[in-house]
Design a binder for these strands. Sequence first.
DNA 1: AGCGGAACCTGTCGGC
DNA 2: TGCCGACAGGTTCCGC
Length: 272
Amino acid sequence: MPELPEVETVVRELREEICGDAISSVEIFRKNPIVQGDLDAFQEKLCGMTFLDVTRRAKFLIFHLQPERYLIAHLRMTGKFIISDPLPEPIKHNRVWFHLKSGRVMIFDDIRCFGTLEVYDKLADSKSLIKLGIEPLSAEMNSNYFLKKMLSSKREIKTVLLDQKIVVGLGNIYVSEILFRSRIHPQRAAGKLLKRDWTKIIKHTQDILEEAIKNNGTTISDFRRVDDKTGTFQQFLQVYGKNEQACPECDVPIQRIVQQQRSTFFCAECQK
DNA sequence: AGCGGAACCTGTCGGC
DNA sequence: TGCCGACAGGTTCCGC
């Protein structure tokens, strides 16, 4: 489900809701594969902890707890966080309930159970955070980084932009949109892109992500904000999911191809 | 190094 | 109505 703008939206809303609140108990309705490691240890390490902050790294949500400890969550395709008043019993795809001192419940809900929840005493202990590439909205996001990193790479640019070891936060929807605005064909070899190509990619990546964050993300089917509202960026998508529809620039039908077992949408006329 | 394919799960949709 | 395949915003692992 969520890419950077959706995760950022959830992080901001959770931060607003739960900072200062604390966990009184944890109920797990479905263990595998969501909660990593020992269940008792997971519950024990969280009980009594106070939420200091919620931040984002790549597509991970990081709950900063006091005394020092971290709950790291990944929503994968269908994960959601919901803050709710007490419920009589878990509904639908509720997987974990974090009972809060305020009397509310923070619910982790996940239809497909791909999401993950992990607890660490130190952020550096998390293996998943170690290998990540640069944040696309940071100063590290510049053409020299990509020119150096992709020197003579034959990988397709679509694949490279999805690779979280290179640059984080982008997923299948936004990569199609970024390459369309950049007028770059998704199958171009990353190693042959010129400085001016990277400059375009970087500009449009940042523009699109910022616009999407302003719109609270993109809701195609499942994505919901903490308050159950939808994002609104879907109305600005130009190619994703528009197979056979007219390109907004040139009217030629948008094409769908498969790269890395995933759909890519692009305009063969506009993107070279 | 980097491909393709499968796997992790559940749900929806379209075709026959 | 029912069955079957394709597909879904992500990531990892395995073999070649």
